[in-house]
Simulated assay, not measured.
Amino acid sequence: MAAMPSFFARLARPFSTSMRLAPEGGAQNYPANAQKATIAAGCFWGVEHMYRKQFAGQGLLDAKVGYIGGDTKNPSYRSVCSGRTGHAEALQVIFDPDKVSYRQLLEFFYKMHDPTTADRQGPDWGSQYRSAIFFHDAEQETIAKDVTEKANKQWYKGKIATEVIPAGEWYDAETYHQLYLDKNPGGYECPSHFLRKFPPLE
């Protein structure tokens, strides 16, 4: 779909009164070594779609879209779209570190969106569309900062505006947002979501 002006892009997205899943979702039967990665890179429909396509069968155990980074309890999609909750549209990936590393997931993150535009991806603007890595422990923080520093130097020439911050409370997005582009192949996709052809980070 061609890019729409940001105002109309936001209006064109469906709102729903569907109930959200509970924060952190339900219990899942993940392997004991499963780890969690949480990132924000603009409209979460396209972010989820690209991660599932890239890592299906290669260590991705599950992925869900939701809200993180703000101070509003139990936010709805409509409230997050207002830009007043502090939350970002985000993706949370559950992965098998024996098959794909956290570093690989973050290198892909820096290839699949534009991390140089603060609070904006393509025609979508506002803090809910910011670029951010939400780390879950000290090891993830170290890796996130290292990958960010290298990508900033080697790929983006010092222009990265991505936040690297501790993960706060996560809220699953409403059910109809999960796997949205699989269910709606003609749905809106942010034009900044495509895989950039960068050389490997050194």
Rank of each mutant, 00 (worst) to 15 (best):
I68R: 02
G126F: 07
A88S: 14
G66V: 10
E139H: 12
R84M: 15
A90R: 14
P97M: 12
Y180V: 06
P31M: 06
G83H: 03
S18I: 03
N152R: 08
T38Y: 02
N152H: 10
S82R: 13
K150R: 15
R10H: 09
P23V: 00
S6L: 10
Y156C: 07
P75E: 12
D137P: 06
D172T: 04
W45D: 02
G86M: 12
T85L: 09
G42R: 02
A161G: 06
K111A: 13
A37D: 05
A144K: 01
R20M: 10
W45G: 01
W170E: 02
L60D: 11
L11P: 05
F135V: 04
A22T: 12
G69K: 05
H136G: 01
T148F: 03
S16D: 01
A22E: 14
V65A: 03
Q178C: 05
C190G: 07
L179N: 15
T17K: 13
F135T: 04
D124Y: 10
T117G: 04
G168K: 02
S131Y: 01
I68H: 05
M19Y: 00
A118M: 15
G126Y: 05
R130E: 11
F8L: 15
L181C: 06
E48D: 11
N33A: 11
P14M: 11
L91G: 04
Y129M: 12
M1T: 07
R103H: 14
R20K: 13
I143N: 12
S127D: 09
D96E: 10
R196I: 07
Y67H: 13
G26N: 13
R103P: 12
N33R: 13
D182N: 11
G83Q: 04
D124V: 11
F109I: 08
G70M: 10
L60C: 08
P23M: 00
A12K: 08
G126A: 10
E163W: 06
L61P: 00
N29G: 01
Y110M: 13
K53S: 15
A3E: 15
F198G: 03
Y129L: 12
Q178S: 09
V164F: 00
V47Y: 07
M50S: 07
K153V: 08
R10K: 15
A161K: 15
I165F: 00
V65H: 01
D124G: 07
G66M: 03
G86R: 13
N184T: 11
S101E: 09
E149W: 05
K150L: 15
A144V: 06
N184Y: 02
P191A: 08
A161Y: 08
